[in-house]
Amino acid sequence: MSRLRDALDRGEFVITGEVAPPHGTDYSAMRASLDTLGPLCHAINITDNQGATLHLSSLAASKAALEAGYEPIFQQTCRDRNRLALQSDLLAAWTLGLENVLMVTGDDPRSGDHTKAKGVFDLDSTQLLAVAKGMNEGVDMNGSELTGATGFLLGGAMFPEAEPWEIQLERAVQKAEAGATFFQTQAVMDTDKLARAVDALAPYGVKLIASILLLKNGRVIDFVNTKLAGMMIPDHIGSRIKGAADPMAEAIALATEQVREIRDIAHGVHVMPLGADDVVERILEGAGL
């Protein structure tokens, strides 16, 4: 049974983290990251060619995480596979013991390291959620019965701060209706907007896991603002870190405040330490988790 599902069902405040599979076959860096974050989290997202850059497959890396004793959230993007490949990977994931899946669209290949690649996008994330929900009910996308169903906990991405809000909300509702039972959000900068999202989605029975980014220095802030799609760090936060005598200490303080606030609003927090895995424990403890 998925620990994540269990905790969400019980109404426990959940903690998730994320690690990237290697760009190669050496798992040691991912393993080190897992050993730091894994014990603090209910589940760990295993990204799928994130940023449209080549990594070992999320499927294999999720299995590796499971074998290392941690609960993975297998991420699937729509960018690299058509509907046949997506479905067969989902069937494979279930037989490998992967119970949590997060469906995302995926960044455009033009923004990654294989700029000449063809973006597949045969399905979009809403359609893929509906397909996975069907598999949970024992049928493939054509409605043909499967010899053995899946039983995934299905998640989607949602963006509480991206305007126009009505369109964001409509998207999230579509995803919930397609099968998402939890959402992981884009990094939260404005907790009022997070609260607005939690309230608006409450009637749909979905759980919201809000993300925080560890903005450990000015470089990270500039990177997020220029390179990460759908994310903008507001000036007051940017200058707080950039102007601090010790940016890392300030970033930890900020993240701790954010987690504390999120605790009162959302159903969980997703921590993205951007490499500074070793400070996550301090942040969570500082926030009383």
Partner: peptide
Amino acid sequence: KGLLNGPCGGMW
């Protein structure tokens, strides 16, 4: 991206 349903998460 040719998505039939959107916007994707990168819209800002």
